[in-house]
């Protein structure tokens, strides 16, 4: 078990190294140069920056410098926001994104499992049709549309009632978090609902549920002891990709709801071609996702007794 986790972590590091390398060379092939900015830059600043990153050296040397800094956990200093370390940016803004993401994943997973089980229970009846219609909407409408629409309806709701039910944008209180987390988790919730529904239907017609009935186990107990745990297995397997989808979806939602998360900084950095910030956040996000997937796999080993966590 421990050996398995160590092996996975080692593989994770290699994956992160790939991500870092790909990002580095991709950035080098982007036209433009962070130093030829429209903002004026003194000759000394320029010289200092060039020296630090070896910008006048050949690409291979720059790559080695990049790797060396990376290994030390030093992502460098922002080119645009002078004197701000990338590490500081991450430290300050990632927690905001993480709270938003965790909340969304919780929304998506509980909603998906709940609605999926419900639709399976009411198969081909009104609740099933209704929820599945919403699921198709949730999957097909892009999150920036949902975000804008939900903001719009919040505005109308607040003006209609004459007080603020939920704030339209910003960050700070739990009230600020609810709407964006819901919007961010919506398409994943829809996807998980569909998955849970089919998984639940399969389990319902399984031989072992028939056995449980033949033992005279009451329906609620069959649901909790026999159906739920087995039906959840496929949902747990896709939780890794689901977390990835929510994390990347966060970029847009943070922008729309004016949330000071890391995603917003990432988008801004890309727009401004802020080298170090782009590379730092990409590698950071990559590492985060890789280790979330490992975590999900380990959790799966606990949920499904047939999966053994031996290396």
């Amino acid at each position: 078990m421990l050996l398995y986790i160590l092996k996975r972590v080692f593989q994770g590091f290699i994956t992160v190294w790939f991500i870092a390398t790909a990002t580095f060379f991709a950035m080098h092939n982007v036209p433009g140069d962070p130093l030829t900015n429209d903002r004026a830059m003194t000759e000394t600043t320029r010289a200092n920056l060039e020296a630090k990153y070896g910008l006048d050296e050949p690409v291979s040397t720059q790559y080695l410098i990049f790797l060396r800094n990376l290994a030390r956990g030093d992502f460098g200093i922002s080119f645009v926001q002078e004197n701000r370390e990338v590490n500081d940016i991450i430290r300050e803004h990632f927690p905001v994104s993480a709270i938003l993401g965790v909340l969304s994943v919780v929304f998506a997973a509980t909603g998906g499992v709940l609605f999926g089980a419900l639709t399976a229970l009411y198969r081909n009846r009104l609740p099933d049709y209704l929820i599945m219609f919403l699921v198709i909407l949730g999957i097909s409408v892009p999150s920036f549309v949902v975000a804008a629409l939900s903001q719009l309806s919040l505005v109308s709701l607040n003006t209609l009632l004459g007080f603020t039910v939920l704030p339209v944008a910003g960050w700070g209180t739990v009230m600020h978090m609810l709407m964006p987390a819901l919007v961010l988790g919506l398409s994943t919730m829809a996807y998980l609902t569909r998955l849970m529904r089919s998984s639940m239907l399969e389990v319902t017609s399984s031989d072992y549920v028939r056995t449980a009935k033949s033992k005279g186990v009451p329906p609620t107990r069959i649901f909790t002891r026999h159906q739920l745990r087995n039906a959840i297995l496929p949902v747990v397997t896709v939780l890794g990709p689901a977390i990835a989808a929510i994390t990347t979806g966060g970029f847009v939602v943070e922008l729309v709801f004016a949330i000071p998360g890391l995603g917003r900084y990432f988008v801004e950095a890309v727009q401004q071609l802020d080298y170090t910030v782009i590379m730092g956040t990409t590698v950071f996000y990559g590492a985060f996702l890789v280790f979330m997937v490992i975590l999900v796999d380990v959790v799966y080993g606990f949920v499904d007794p047939r999966v053994s966590l031996d290396a």
């Binding site: 399984s206 031989d207 072992y208 028939r210 056995t211 449980a212 009935k213 033949s214 033992k215 005279g216 186990v217 002891r225 026999h226 745990r229 087995n230 297995l233 949920v303 499904d304 007794p305 047939r306």
Partner: peptide, 30 residues
């Protein structure tokens, strides 16, 4: 009736038991 007055076993034992529940717990359930 089910499980108390009449017990039943099935054709395929491989699929007739809950894969995520311990054998002892499944026998203890009734």
């Amino acid at each position: 009736i089910r499980g108390a007055e009449i017990g039943m076993i099935f054709q395929d034992p491989m699929t007739s038991l809950n894969p995520t529940m311990k054998i002892g717990d499944q026998i203890a359930e009734p």
